[in-house]
Design a protein around this nucleic acid. Structure first.
Lengths: 130, 130
DNA sequence: TGAACATATGAACAATAATTCATATGTTCA
DNA sequence: TGAACATATGAATTATTGTTCATATGTTCA
């Protein structure tokens, strides 16, 4: 590749773009206007990131059957107490689970109705592909 | 090492567990029976992982307004063509978008009705917390 | 055919994230 | 109070993921 070409293919696309410009101009304009604020989209992706880990998905699924304490979860999922506890913290921060002290234990429960609905949608997408 | 493998290699908690044993025994038993196969939960988390990134969320949101080609997206999101293209590949693999060639361009579009619904649920969770 | 354009992709690098280990905090009970 | 238990957390380690760079592939048109 020549020097000239390299310069023209710079990474940030401040430049013209492709010839589709006219074709998709409406869509792009609408997208620019309708797109939620970057901040909001960031929060949204942070939420889904929480669902994007097998350990946390398994914890959430387990809790969808009823409340449990940390050592129950560790035993059920065959994981270390520490790993479970760390992940529960993330779930707490995302307000997907809540916990209360009960004697020496911390009892965790789902804190959101959306969790089951989100699972359902996800599963139905996956199952369509099988 | 993949996440799946790591789950399997996780340190086991061989020990007994807490005194809640009797208290949550039913829930645990039900969870053991109802919990989908690890494989299925892995697929589910892989799906949500795709939603767990700002760039991909923005791409999906943009495409929810209508189809666009790669350079449109790069311009709209102020990102490099390569980065957009890499992320589109992941979205394609997850069957969330489809694409077709149109001359020199590749035109991308949403390939799944679930996307909008998943967005809605996510947003409603986030908005409850504000 | 070859120049120009649009997109895709492998590899390297940088940034994130998950687990483990060691230990701190909080709770019960003798 | 102190021993035993349950949980939480900081730091280190390791794994994973996103972006960039360079370049390859695919398409159009003169």
């Amino acid at each position: 590749m020549t020097q000239k070409q390299r310069v023209e293919q710079t990474q940030l696309s401040e430049e013209a773009g492709c010839g589709c410009k006219e074709k998709h101009a409406d869509t792009m304009e609408k997208a620019r206007q309708e797109m939620p604020a970057v901040e909001e989209l960031y929060d949204l992706s942070e939420l889904f990131k929480v669902f994007g880990d097998t350990t946390r998905i398994r914890i959430l699924w387990a809790l969808s059957e009823g409340e449990m304490c940390v050592c129950d979860l560790a035993e059920l999922l065959e994981m270390g107490q520490s790993a479970v506890s760390h992940q529960l913290r993330l779930l707490r921060q995302a307000r997907l689970v809540r916990c209360r002290r009960e004697g020496k234990s911390s009892v965790y429960a789902l804190d959101d109705d959306h969790v089951r609905k989100i699972f359902e949608l996800g599963m139905s997408h996956i199952e369509e592909l099988r």
